[in-house]
Design a protein around this nucleic acid. Sequence first.
DNA 1: AGCCAATTATTGACAGAGTCCAGAATTATG
DNA 2: CATAATTCTGGACTCTGTCAATAATTGGCT
Lengths: 149, 149
Amino acid sequence: MPANSAILLRENGLQVTAQRLSVLRALTVRPHATADEIAELVREDIGTVSRQAVYDSLGLLTDKCLIRRIQPAGSPALYEDRVGDNHHHVICRQCGKTSDVDCAIDDTPCLTAADDSGYEIDEAEVIFWGTCPDCLPMSAAAPAIKKKS
Amino acid sequence: MPANSAILLRENGLQVTAQRLSVLRALTVRPHATADEIAELVREDIGTVSRQAVYDSLGLLTDKCLIRRIQPAGSPALYEDRVGDNHHHVICRQCGKTSDVDCAIDDTPCLTAADDSGYEIDEAEVIFWGTCPDCLPMSAAAPAIKKKS
DNA sequence: AGCCAATTATTGACAGAGTCCAGAATTATG
DNA sequence: CATAATTCTGGACTCTGTCAATAATTGGCT
């Protein structure tokens, strides 16, 4: 639904540009994409974009909460479509594959820290690290790159 | 206890060097420090270190689980002393101050994802984002730098 | 103590991700 | 259509972190 995206942009006070629409489209096609991957997808889609345009769009869309940015350790930032629900991520240490996980405990559990030290908490970010189904067989055979050992 | 650190290093098969001891000392003095801050502290302590030596030491110590590395979104990696217990962190969006939080739910709750998608999970990393007590008054008055708005 | 082999530290170059800036092009609006 | 504002382009630049070759230390042994 391309028209939909256009409306979404306008509703948030953003101008509608080919680049932004394409960025949005790219995120639908491939969730958990890096800025670079998005740039490539956009290029395939509309011919050419500057890196800056991609970063600008991603930044703007993130600010407006139309997309979400996650920044796992040791990897560039990833962007995803799915916003509004407080879901988390599992990342494979072997291949880097990232998947969504719903929150372990009921609804908005994750906003509860035992002792918040007086902070006013507005978000809980949870990243699970492990081995994905595809890599499990391999990691059984060889310890793999668990760390750069 | 400087002697203690030396023993700790040797027990883990590492040579004892002035740089490593000083890095360990720096982490005791200032938990949640960046590699750069640690380098500075070490320099004040023993005169001079190369950036590389600091990264090497931190990497090695992290591998041996003598220290822990946390990599919050939008900030360089932080290192801390406190290992062995599964505790998490709160970070202030305004000033970046980082504090420890004990796990919200009992003991090892955080390793349970509702649906693990077949992953074998070995670690859960939890970061709470919010506003620290010091910044709360300010953020009430002015929205502050919540994002680069 | 003094020496040797192995481990560490230093130095300098380099890579990836992201940001900043100024001018050119595009967009929404009257 | 014309205007003002916003957005895009392209290039330079910063910040973390890593690599590789050479020099210095450490720890065990005599």
